[in-house]
Amino acid sequence: MDRTQIRLYLKKNSAKIILLMVAALFIWPWLWLIFASLDANAPLTVKIPDRFTLDNFSQVLSKGSNYRSFLNSFIIAFLQSTLVVILSILAAYPLSRYRIKRKGTIMYSLLFLTGLPITAIMVPVYMVFFQLKIINSLLSTTLFLAATALPYSIWMMKNFLDDVPITLEEAAWIDGAGALQTIRHIIFPSILPGIMVVFIFTFSGSWGNFFVPFILINSAEKMPAAVAIYQFFGAYGSVQFGQLAAFSLLYTLPIAGLYIISQRFLSNGFTLGGAIK
């Protein structure tokens, strides 16, 4: 290829080249995480290890407290998401199916709450929890997180319910089924993808949340991974880079995997979803 051909090629493919360069820039910081986690003497720069090893992972996994932190994250995220799914279906059902006075006001209030920065209410939440002596508890932290995720989840769930034709339910009602039965046998199966969306959003938001448990939980054995990993960073992470990277990967991969696998469920809920992150 001579110069003009190269120039022509570049001109024709400029968009592609820019895109791939940006993609490389985005992957670059992440590469450190992967290489460092597999390197016994990990530096802070992206470097292919001289010898690949899983020592960092076994070091991180040899500590019982690290398992404990993953378990705590899972307990909080799972309980929160389950609670949010159940309560949001219950609350969204009348909003979708019955004539309610001020329905618009309710919907707008929910949307409004969705936008508020949670950070701003953490100080008073801490005070209330402190006075009620429910500070440092997985349960109260879970309930608080559920409350913050509910406005958006109800909003989404109502939209999913609106898409389900009412005729099936009418048939069930004529057969004498109650509202709860109808929800369980008719509604639940038809909005399963919607339920997945709400569940995954809530779960990943909870798993990645740092500020809420950082404020509300203070004993080591109750700390979720987000806080435990931050403490690890303070204690060893600025020396044991390999272990920090391994810990970070173990913490990130489940949620990244869940998110990517569930892309097809998430695509329709995505646009609004970021608001609660």
């Binding site: 910081p29 450190w32 990645g208 740092f210 931050y230 920090l244």
Partner: peptide, 11 residues
């Protein structure tokens, strides 16, 4: 998809 604390470590 990277949790914000991990974003900090990466950077």
């Amino acid at each position: 998809v990277t949790p914000e604390v991990v974003v900090s470590f990466v950077f």
